[in-house]
Write a protein that binds this DNA or RNA. Structure first.
Lengths: 208, 208
DNA sequence: ACCTGAACACCGTTCAAGT
DNA sequence: ACCTGAACACCGTTCAAGT
């Protein structure tokens, strides 16, 4: 099999999935592809480009069903959990991409297209869609980063110093923590967006 | 000046602030400290430990004023913006820490102590404080990560594909975008938390 | 206890040379 | 056009040796 850009990315993804981004090496990548390390440089300018390529490749794989008729809250929830599923399929890569590839989510990406459509359907004025989309992207990638690197788990299991917890019964917390907190974040942000969209009885304008 | 653990961390921080985490090298660190590269290993087990040490050092520097009598919404806003200020003082390090140091925010850290107190004052039941704190930590570090690596700026400036924007008047967006969106995220999450705390007239329990 | 030089096992990438 | 070997300029870390 001849060397191709796509083939290089695919092999890099396998290495990353297995051993993490920091273990990816041009030389290992060449070995896996049965090639000379220097041959790669005829298809790819450097290692950074490999990482960028793998990131865009996975990002463009994202698919989500569009429930045109469901309420926007449900649709955004589904979009976010679909995105979470993708993140869990390639956790090492996604943790890297979220922090190192600022253009990971681009205009044409299915995620952003779907998100834009949902926000529009929700009644977000067109001029506020970019900033609202940014809020959602930041929150979703943020909580996923924390979930993928273990921070979320740690935070959720910290016992507050406040009120030294007199009874420390032996039951340790049950562990599907991460998904619960992911949903909690989602619910919280959705509720927050809701009340920005429905001007409440105090007459506060939507989107102040 | 003799080599010390704290001195090593301080020098490492200067290098990171200047050139980024990926440019930090045990050998450069030694040069800056006027020492032999191998001397460092008598005070620090390895490079990873240096990064951990620098992270904890900066994390413990965090300070915030405690407005006991202000409403919890104001207090959490202040806490978050104080944290943002710290993040901007060492952007390269913090971007790294958020994604690579899951224990960056620990129980004894002033940030978490203050957050716990605020959530308690807000009326969050003690049993729900950890998960609520996790939500806030995830959202704040998430939006800061996106801000520090430029993703937030990109997202906020993407023109939706929807409705091809007939009039593209020359005025480019004015740029204090990041801070505005940071506040927007904060407002959204606070509003979301509020409605979780004040059971609304439909009788939905607080914290379902 | 602390420091150090040499060495090992790696990296990414350039470059001139091959087909 | 594509591949390749040798080489360069780096890494982190071990280890035996020094004081």
């Amino acid at each position: 099999m001849p060397l191709t850009e796509a083939g290089i990315y695919a092999a890099a993804l396998r290495l990353i999935d297995a051993d993490g981004v920091e273990a990816l090496t041009m030389r290992k990548l060449a070995t896996v592809l049965d090639a000379n390390p220097m041959s790669l440089y005829h298809h790819v300018p450097n290692k950074e480009a490999v990482l960028r390529g793998v990131t865009r490749m996975v990002g463009s794989q994202f698919r989500t069903v569009t429930l045109e008729n469901a309420p926007w809250q449900e649709r955004i929830r589904l979009l976010a959990t679909d995105f979470r599923t993708l993140a869990h399929r390639h956790p090492k890569l996604m943790a890297y991409s979220f922090s190192h590839q600022p253009d990971f989510i681009q205009r044409e990406d299915p995620f952003l297209v779907a998100l834009t459509a949902i926000l529009d359907a929700a009644g977000v004025p067109l001029s506020k869609i970019p900033e609202t989309a940014a809020v959602v992207c930041a929150v979703v990638t943020g909580v996923l980063t924390a979930e993928l690197n273990g921070a979320l788990h740690q935070w959720a299991n910290i016992k507050p110093l406040i009120a030294p917890t007199a009874d420390d019964n032996g039951s340790t917390n049950s562990d599907p923590d991460e998904e619960r907190i992911f949903r909690l974040v989602l619910d919280t942000i959705i509720t927050g967006l809701e009340s920005r969209l429905t001007p409440d009885r105090d007459g506060q304008a939507a989107g102040r």
